[in-house]
Simulated assay, not measured.
Amino acid sequence: MKHLLLVFASVMLVACSKEEAAPEPVRPVLSIKVEALGEQNLGRFAGSIQARYESNVGFRVPGRIASRSVDVGAEVEKGALLASLDPTDQKNQLRSAEGDLASIRANLINAQATARRQQSLFDQGVGSQAQLDAAQTDLKTTQASLDQAQAAVNQAKDQLNYVELRADHKAVVTAWMAEAGQVVTAGQQVVTLAQPDIKEAVIDLPDTLVDQLPQDVVFQVALQLTPEINTTAVVREIEPQAESTTRTRRARLTLSETPTAFRLGSAISVTLSSAIKPQIELPLSALQEVEGKSRIWIVDTQSQTVSPRDVSIVSRTDTTVVVASGVKSGERVVSAGVNSLKPGQKVKVDEGSPQ
């Protein structure tokens, strides 16, 4: 009986030792590779590509628009006809001025003949000084009237030329403010011309953000439909006052480069960022609070084990934390399930984890 008890005890001891020697199972974990952030994202805004230089032009004389020669979006060369007025009034004014000029020219011929005759009579001693002075005064007055009439004709010709609105530089037509048949006044804005050579990005920024923009702010400008086409930009000007309804201020940005795809009117997406001291951002699920200290779990990629490490937290949100010290760029950190880990525990990095 004693022999059987000894055999049974021996078997139990061997079984227990085998159970104690059984290795811990390898635990799958989610992890991320740490990367230091050198920029702070300040927001993303929609905008458009516009010409830096635009001009609103109109006719120099009043009248009714007879025709429009180009449409919005058309590229025009210097001197190209944009629109024209009904020239009837200007032609009538020119005919009237030319008639006055012809009449005064005839009067000038008579005044010249009278002045010569009075001079001849005075030289012969049969004409009076008063008659000679009157003839010469009339000649000078008529000559002045002729000059005035000639100026009126020139002005009437200019007025006739002004019924045609022409581009004074190479431009793109971006807007029309009047249609054919509409009566316009002198100087009234009729069409907007944009110089296509120099383009810039235009966005509306919240008034509260503008006051907080750092001097080294960087703007990343990309096309909304093809974001791979992008460039950087700097502030050229920001409107001093906010728009009353939206509380935004318009900002104009000078592009460092102008890709061909950046056409006038193209919709763009502008991201604001600023250089900061390198920081590391981790998901909130990677953080473990133990006895008032914050720690994370570092994955040793060689031994496939984990170890805890205390970290210093700069800030946190509902989903992320910013770590100031305790972890370096390039290390791998467990991103979920940290509360069930033990120091030195074997883990298997999930294949879906970022490398």
Rank of each mutant, 00 (worst) to 15 (best):
L253M: 03
R316W: 03
Q131G: 05
V311R: 03
Q355W: 02
A175I: 13
R44N: 08
R236G: 04
Q355M: 09
V321M: 08
D100V: 07
D300L: 10
I65V: 12
V322D: 04
E75R: 13
P343F: 01
V29Q: 02
R64A: 12
Q112P: 07
Q40T: 07
A151L: 15
L30N: 11
Q355G: 07
E200L: 09
D216M: 11
V235R: 06
I109K: 15
R117K: 14
S273R: 15
V7T: 09
H3T: 13
I32D: 06
A275I: 06
Q159T: 06
A36R: 13
A111N: 13
V76M: 10
L82A: 01
S353Y: 01
D216P: 07
Q136K: 13
Q241G: 01
V311T: 03
P240T: 06
I203F: 05
L30W: 10
Q224P: 00
Q224R: 13
G58W: 12
D123R: 12
L132F: 02
A242T: 05
V173P: 05
K348E: 05
R105T: 04
V221H: 08
S307Q: 12
I280Q: 02
L146M: 13
S69V: 06
S256K: 14
D204G: 08
M12V: 14
P25S: 08
W297A: 05
S285Q: 07
E239T: 04
T305S: 10
Q129W: 10
V290F: 04
N41D: 11
Q302H: 05
T141A: 14
R52C: 11
A194G: 05
F122V: 07
I104V: 12
V163G: 03
I49E: 11
V333L: 07
D123G: 05
E39H: 11
P283V: 10
A286M: 06
Q150H: 05
P214K: 09
V217N: 05
T301Y: 01
E164P: 02
V183P: 00
Q195V: 10
R249I: 03
G352D: 01
T301Q: 11
